[in-house]
């Protein structure tokens, strides 16, 4: 069992500022359901440019919920310039500490805030993105750099605790080590900007498209399809019912499912059937 502080437990059991803001000035999303936690953060400013209202919705464990709740409390009354200065360590301190394995929850809060502020300023998400280093959890070079700098991280394990990067297949461990080495030797890293949907948006759109456009046709033939995972632009699905035994299901997946998803979600998607 995790050793959580009383304050953290209180914010988990009685989360403050849950919900969405209809006419929000800035909204930021971070994480994905595949990663196991996700946060949607929104704020509204008053006439003096100070945060009047901050709200959140979180999918995740107790510390993910509590850090989001704490962050919304910390944001109230702050100008955006002040809000920008909040570090993930400030959120941790506010809660009286976090287990090392849960530090990524505080980083998620910090990142959602970055995105919400960027959203307010009309900067698209692209500026905050960067090259994906950890494919398993969709963590970018820039996010890792930031966590390493702000928290003075020196090992891959610490980077995993703070950002989740490297916590899956482990293929990116060399790349993470390089980032740590480069930052610690103070050399410059230039991230390559690349636009994309946030994971939350992408997964939600895929699910919606499956439900609305694809399942009804498959069900007419006694079949069905299930979304198993989304890895970057790879959409992993499993066929069910009649589809599972149908010789032509591979064609259906490529010519119908993939085409629809490319058309309605994003053209880069590749649909793959996984063996069940």
């Amino acid at each position: 069992m995790w050793e959580y502080t009383e304050k953290l437990k209180d914010h988990f059991l009685n989360p403050r500022n849950v919900g969405e803001i209809d006419d929000a000035d800035g909204v930021g999303e971070e994480g994905s359901i595949a990663c196991g936690d996700a946060l949607k953060l929104a704020f509204k400013l008053d006439e003096n440019g100070r945060i009047k209202e901050a709200k959140f919705k979180t999918f995740g464990c107790a510390s993910a919920i509590a850090t989001a709740s704490a962050l919304t409390e910390m944001l109230k009354g702050k100008s955006l310039e002040e809000a920008e200065k909040i570090t993930n360590q400030d959120i941790v301190d506010y809660l009286g500490g976090l287990p090392p394995e849960k530090m990524h929850c505080s980083v998620m809060g910090r990142q959602a805030l970055d995105r919400a502020i960027a959203n307010y300023r009309g900067v698209s998400g692209e500026a905050v993105e960067g090259k994906i280093v950890c494919e398993c959890f969709g963590v970018t070079e820039k996010e890792i750099e930031k966590a390493v700098r702000e928290n003075n991280l020196s090992s891959i394990e610490e980077v995993t605790n703070f950002t989740k990067a490297g916590g899956g297949c482990g293929n990116c461990h060399d790349a993470i080590q390089q980032i740590i080495d480069q930052i610690r030797s103070k050399s410059e890293i230039k991230p390559t900007a690349k636009g994309r949907l946030t994971n939350i948006q992408k997964i939600r759109m895929i699910e919606e498209t499956l439900e609305r456009e694809i399942r009804p046709s498959l069900r007419q033939d006694g079949g069905d399809i299930e979304l198993i995972d989304v890895e970057g632009n790879r959409v992993l699905v499993a066929t069910r019912g009649a589809c599972a035994t149908c010789q032509a299901s591979q064609q259906t997946i490529k010519n119908f499912v993939e085409m629809k998803l490319r058309e309605l979600v994003t053209p880069e998607l590749v649909v793959e059937e996984v063996a069940q």
Partner: peptide
């Protein structure tokens, strides 16, 4: 079998081996 309870970052290897969708596994 969620990731967060184990201290690892991925849901249980049992549920993953069974292809339980991630919306369910966590």
């Amino acid at each position: 079998g969620s990731a967060c309870t184990s201290g690892s970052l991925q849901p249980s290897h049992v549920l993953r081996a069974m292809g339980v969708p991630f919306t369910m596994a966590h």
